[in-house]
Design a protein around this nucleic acid. Structure first.
Lengths: 207, 207
DNA sequence: TGATCAATCCCTGTTTCGGGGGATTTTTCT
DNA sequence: AGAAAAATCCCCCGAAACAGGGATTGATCA
């Protein structure tokens, strides 16, 4: 019986060590590499062709989200399990969209990691039980409005504290245009003033 | 020669494992306990009287900040090293105020942890080199304005999207009063409109 | 090729905000 | 008891935001 080959990517040595220890306690797992960033990860995938890559989401330079995307493209047979802290849950939807097969929290214990690996290896989707709860919150998070590029641009400038006329000057468009974008933002976020807008935008990590 | 007794507190098993592995590689260190939360930590301190407690900052129920406070009061001889992820740096000042002797990032390697332990054990303050940089940013972060309770109250309601008149109605005061508070908030945060206000407030974790 | 959507621009109101003043009463702490 | 800070209230004015319409140009795509 072949062991499942696993590669772990995280920029925190501590987490890397912890994963190593935990994974070494699982009999059917073989660690084929530990990467500190996406570059190392890609190299190690090439060299060792693991079955599963467990990757942190927030990493400097290339994020886990982008890494997942790369892996999907270049090594579609490799499964990806995303890993994050509790307060980064908002990335779940984006991660799954990008082709992640599983999602665990860094607070996961050995049992859960084991289960995640088995589930994913079977071709199924694994979601940490801690993430499944709270449908309401889940919905809210995934309910990030789809903004056009121009709207995002305007939103950022609004968050910086610029007024419509100032933004118009920066973007070389009419203040009326900026006002339209602003109104659309208010509608899309379903709020009725700037305060609510910025709060939600911040919540969704857009500012 | 006595070993330095260390207790580690973190709600992520992975980090706990990682720390254990790393600490076990340091000759002059003895791990006296691993706690998953502040309660366990306090018990283990009582039982094993460690020299140094390395604690995560963001933990459910009782945060590392509160834990530090407790330790300061009940066991003033025990040193505390705070541990956080890069994006939680804003807690540094509060941590140091509460009596932490050191501050490291979870991305720290074995060498840095070793150095932190030695420095703290000598009674000095240890700051991760990654945190020392960027004085400007540091200042900005510690520059969280001191708000009065009423101002905080108003700020929250503004962030919720309520207008001055609505807030006034909620607090049973005159709209003029709310306006005054709002103006004071703008002054204290040194911004000139609601957008900038909410953005900064979110940055400082106030909303 | 028609439909849809993004991006642009325009108008008219009303309301709120932001900046500038000043003032009084509580609370809090020394 | 007295100072300092917090909380309250008041006024004016111009600028901005909000709400409600509508319209035109391109690009994209079924």
């Amino acid at each position: 019986m072949d062991k499942i080959k696993i590669l772990v990517t995280d920029d925190h040595p501590m987490v890397l060590e912890g994963m190593q220890t935990m994974l070494s306690q699982i009999s059917f797992v073989a660690i084929t590499g530990l990467a500190r960033n996406a570059y190392e990860a890609m190299e190690l995938i090439k060299a060792n062709s693991p079955h599963i890559v467990i990757t942190d989401i927030s990493m400097p330079e290339i994020s886990g989200i982008e890494l997942t995307e790369k892996i999907r493209k270049e090594y579609p047979e490799v499964k990806v399990i995303a890993m994050s802290t509790f307060n980064e849950r908002s990335y779940i939807s984006r991660m799954v969209q990008n082709g992640a097969s599983g999602y665990i929290l860094k607070s996961a214990g050995r049992e859960e990691i084991e289960e995640a690996i088995l589930t994913v290896q079977e071709g199924k989707l694994y979601m940490s039980i801690d993430l499944q709860m709270n449908q309401q919150e889940q919905q809210e998070i995934s309910k990030t409005p789809l903004l056009t590029s121009r709207e995002k641009e305007v939103l950022l400038l609004i968050a910086e504290g610029y007024t419509n006329p100032q933004i118009a000057a920066k973007l070389f468009v009419s203040p009326y245009t900026v006002d339209s974008h602003r109104k659309n933002l208010l509608t899309k976020f379903d709020v009725n003033n700037t305060a609510g807008l910025i709060k939600l935008a911040a919540k969704h990590g857009l500012v």
